[in-house]
Design a protein around this nucleic acid. Sequence first.
DNA 1: TGTATAGCTGACTGGTGGTCATTTCAAGGG
DNA 2: CCCTTGAAATGACCACCAGTCAGCTATACA
Lengths: 222, 222
Amino acid sequence: MSSVVAINQRARSAEQKALRRQAVLDAAELYFHEAGYEAFSMAQLAKKTGVAKGTLYLYFQTREELFLTLYEHSLIRWSQVFIAELSGAMTSQAYAQLLYQTALADGVFLPLLIRLEHVIEHNVAIPRLIESKRVFIQQVEIVAQRSATALRLSTAQASEVVKTMGVLLIGATQTDQSPSLDNEALPVDVQHLIASFSSEPLFIKNAVRIIEGVRAEAPPPI
Amino acid sequence: MSSVVAINQRARSAEQKALRRQAVLDAAELYFHEAGYEAFSMAQLAKKTGVAKGTLYLYFQTREELFLTLYEHSLIRWSQVFIAELSGAMTSQAYAQLLYQTALADGVFLPLLIRLEHVIEHNVAIPRLIESKRVFIQQVEIVAQRSATALRLSTAQASEVVKTMGVLLIGATQTDQSPSLDNEALPVDVQHLIASFSSEPLFIKNAVRIIEGVRAEAPPPI
DNA sequence: TGTATAGCTGACTGGTGGTCATTTCAAGGG
DNA sequence: CCCTTGAAATGACCACCAGTCAGCTATACA
């Protein structure tokens, strides 16, 4: 009857299944950190989790559904961290910096966000996808709510800012995904190019421009 | 001796090889339109090109090098179209709209741009990658030059604008890559979400904010 | 026409995500 | 206490993928 059952026993109750599912997710996250998206294989994950490959498919319909779940978890985790560090009144600059740093600090969030719409979502059943969109909506609302206070914007303005920050984050961190060329002997012109696409200033400068743009467009009533 | 040789003969001269390489690229572009990135297979491409799979690897080291080449071609093609339609003095809005529409009109450019740095570049030899970066630098310079005139900005400002437009384009068109859910019976909350991420207004509004932001920061001398 | 060169071929390799008939084990009834 | 039962777990198996390379043969040139 004890609900704390060794994980490598058979999971029969719903509770035990949830535990096992989580164990798979934990192993997946660890493995993802090591291997990244492209090199991540289900066979390897099975080994690292200590189960057979077929077992993984009892808990996730596809590899992409597993990634979608990892993404959801990392989104929630990030939004909690971000919100917790928002203060009462911030400059656009400080806000952008905090957003960037917290997003980057979570080693899983950005790589998955970048691949969400053009890879991950294409091998997930529609109902699961809808469920995931709802998690997204909920998190955006929470973050927008707090951002409205921090940036002294209306709720609608804050909501637009938050959504736009996501878009900008995807674009700006794209360059971080390039193969690391820094240690190679690169010609200077290419070095300059890479430097000019450094993601942090790219994100922060443009985030500030956008936030100030939104603020200027429709000054809050009163 | 005739240099116009049937394509399904053996390519011996450099000229003939270039023709064959181009024939592969043409078939690849057509096939890419039908199948998209993920479903694109080298075996299928061989069939469509009318050669054996091994032959493809005489002309491209990897699948990704082929995609990189397609990308380069589409970048050059896009920048020519875009430049040709730039006029002497444009509003930020008109500029952004033109950039968005010309980029979207090329069915290959955006899907490849989106995958450039986190997929394509990771399976291409370094020298080829450097070559590709140089093509990129060159095109950005050309486009920036013309954009400076069109937007009445300094060269440095225009260069920053062009680079930032690329980043924004990647982020904003991300949502267009989602599986098409419109025909399904979607719950209204999710419909609203999708509508609020419609890529065209998302891109154009923020492009304008950024261009105006850049313009305001360092007014051109004189 | 004979021969050397090199473009071309496709069977093959080691991998992938995903399936499913079979095995195995925990729970509940007798 | 054992036995039945049904579901969790398994891993051999499938179709497919990108990429390789020994052998074949069309071509240019002597």
